[in-house]
Each structure stands twice: as C-alpha cells, then as structure tokens.
Simulated assay, not measured.
Amino acid sequence: MKKLIAATALTAIFATGAFAEGVQQYNRSAMETMAGGDTAVVDIMMDAEGNDREDADFQARWDGATPEQQAALKDTCARGIEEKVEFSEVGAARCKIVTTN
C-alpha cells in the first residue's frame, strides 16, 4: 500500500511538472500569436520554452529593444491581459508594468 501511495504521489508530481511546462509553452505560443508571430518581441519576456527571463536579462532585453519592439510588447501584453492569458506571477507583473508605462 505504501508503494502504491508513493507511486501515486510521484505520478502527481511528474504530471504537475508536465502540466506546468505545457502551460509555459502555451503562454509562449499565445504571446507569439498576439505579437503577430514576432518571436523577438516575446523573447524579451521569456525563453523558447516559455520560462520567464531573470530580472536582469529581461531588463537588458527591454533596454535593447527598439521602440517598435517595446510598443509591440506593450500591445501583446495588453491583449494577453484582455484575453486573460494565465501568465506566471512574474509575467503578469511585467505585462502590467510595460502596459502602464
């Protein structure tokens, strides 16, 4: 019985991890669609797997982005917020910041 409980717990842990990865990739895909396929805009916020960038990396990419890319990210975030994309806490905070500045 203990082995069954342990196996069930491990399965739940792995399923949760796979679910989280699926959500991240979905968010990446959704953001790319909202950005008109411009992956460079989405790259400012997240890596290819949909993981949030570290703060310093995000800031450097934002600072290095063209005004057009910054405007596109603002529009993309605004649309994501409007369409209730389930951003990570970090992603939601960053979208809120870029859309209000």
Rank of each mutant, 00 (worst) to 15 (best):
M1D: 02
I5H: 11
A7N: 03
A9T: 01
L10T: 05
L10D: 06
F14I: 00
A15D: 06
T16G: 01
T16D: 03
G17F: 07
A18I: 01
A18H: 01
A20I: 09
G22F: 10
Q24L: 04
Q25T: 08
R28T: 02
A30S: 06
M31T: 11
E32A: 05
T33I: 07
M34T: 01
A35W: 05
D38P: 13
D38F: 13
V41A: 11
M46W: 04
A48I: 08
G50P: 00
D52Y: 05
D52S: 08
E54P: 02
D55W: 08
A56Y: 07
D57L: 12
D57I: 11
F58M: 15
F58A: 15
Q59R: 06
Q59T: 07
R61C: 08
R61V: 02
G64T: 14
A65P: 03
A65E: 01
T66F: 10
P67E: 04
P67D: 05
E68N: 10
E68V: 12
Q69P: 13
A71Q: 06
A71P: 01
A72P: 00
A72R: 03
L73T: 11
L73H: 13
C77D: 10
I81W: 15
E82H: 14
E82G: 12
K84A: 09
F87T: 09
V90A: 13
C95M: 05
K96A: 13
I97Q: 14
N101Q: 12
